[in-house]
Amino acid sequence: MDLRLTDEQHARREAARRFAADVIEPWAERIDREDTTPPSLQAALRASGYLGAALPTEWGGGGIDPVSHGLMTEEIGRVSSSVRSLLTVHDMGAQAITRFGTAEQKARWLPPLCAGEKIIAFALSEPDVGSAAQTIQTRAVERGNTLLLTGVKRWITYGLVADLFLVFAQCDGMPVALVVERETAGLHIKPVTNVFGMRGAMLAELRFDGVAVSRDCQIGPTGAGITFVASAALDHGRFSVAWGSTGIIQACLHACLGYVQQRRQGASRLKDYQLIRRQLADMLVAHTAARALCYRSACLRAQGDPRAVMETSLAKYHASAAAMRVATDAVHMHGANGCSEDYPVSRYLRDATVMGIVEGTHEMHQLALASYAFQRPYLLD
């Protein structure tokens, strides 16, 4: 595996870094403090091309390679996990349509999704159902060529502004995936507030009161909603979260390097203490290791290697766990200042905590990766 970036990949990373610094970072603290992503920033993201960057060129997407996509995600996640989550959830829904949609469905939805003219949200979680996706309680009842959708979805990222929702339900005991438009009669949307981390992700609760959805809005066959459609979307989500977690580690290291060079304890700067230097070394190693696992996952995805799914899970598990450890150390390194919203490390810790829950908890990935370990993945070509 060649970890050297091509000129094109390097240019894309630098462009994403500039966009993150110039357009997103000035809003980062306000996004967290006010629990929202300002409309002007949403508009900038829609116009930037990043929402469709990884989608097929035939439908107007950027068609960028997985490494470039990951680097872009890391740079945006470094300054705001909330904004990064918009790219994640949009890509999850759009990629599901790309892979499992009919020709008519792709022609209908992918052009506006690739162009950023519409945003799609991923609606799987429910008030009483999180990681155990097979137990979803939302129901779809057949009425001729229509499905009547009843149930509640919760924790829907950017559900407050999404134009489309990829919704999962049970139909005669079999899971289905449906695209539901925001203005559909019977769909009620309300905000989910006072969340711990990623506060600007504009979470929503969706209530479906007999919402009529045409059969031509069903993605994939009945019975494939979780095993195929949701699983493929979650794989894309885990790839994004892995790179985003690596961005949080990078942000923590950068914040701590700046802080310990100017902060004094008596006559000495913090950077001169051995314990502090050990912690900085651990942060550097955590970032390097997380990025290397993300690179490996991206390269395998680019090659179409069947190991890519589990290697993405491995990268997500390691990077999100490392982000939480590093962010905890960053807060401690800042002392009482680390508990203040005047310093970004408190936000990094809250966001890192969420990263270990979304797209599969640490515990779920541990179970899957233990099974993967029995396949002796260390004997690699």
Rank of each mutant, 00 (worst) to 15 (best):
Met1Val: 14
Leu5Val: 01
Ala20Cys: 00
Leu41Asp: 07
Arg46Leu: 04
Gly61His: 07
Asp65Tyr: 09
Val67His: 01
His69Tyr: 09
Thr73Asn: 11
Ser81Cys: 12
Arg84Gly: 12
Gln95Pro: 00
Gln95Arg: 15
Thr98Ile: 00
Glu104Tyr: 00
Glu126Asp: 07
Gly151Ser: 05
Asp163Asn: 11
Phe165Pro: 04
Ala169Ile: 08
Pro175Arg: 09
Glu181Asp: 05
Val192Arg: 10
Val195Asn: 08
Ala201Arg: 10
Ala204Thr: 04
Arg207Phe: 01
Asp209Pro: 05
Gln218Lys: 06
Pro221His: 05
Thr222Leu: 12
Gly223Gln: 03
Ser231Gln: 10
Ser240Met: 15
Val241Tyr: 12
Ile248His: 07
Ile248Trp: 02
Cys252Gln: 02
His254Gln: 15
Gly258Pro: 03
Gln262Glu: 13
Gly266Val: 13
Leu270Lys: 07
Leu275Phe: 12
Arg278Cys: 04
Asp282Leu: 12
Thr288Leu: 08
Leu293Glu: 09
Ser297Phe: 03
Gly304Lys: 02
Tyr317Asn: 09
Met324Tyr: 11
Ala327His: 09
Asn337Pro: 00
Tyr343His: 13
Asp351Trp: 02
Met355Asn: 15
Glu359Asn: 05
Thr361Gln: 01
Thr361Met: 03
His365Asp: 07
Leu367His: 03
Leu379Arg: 14
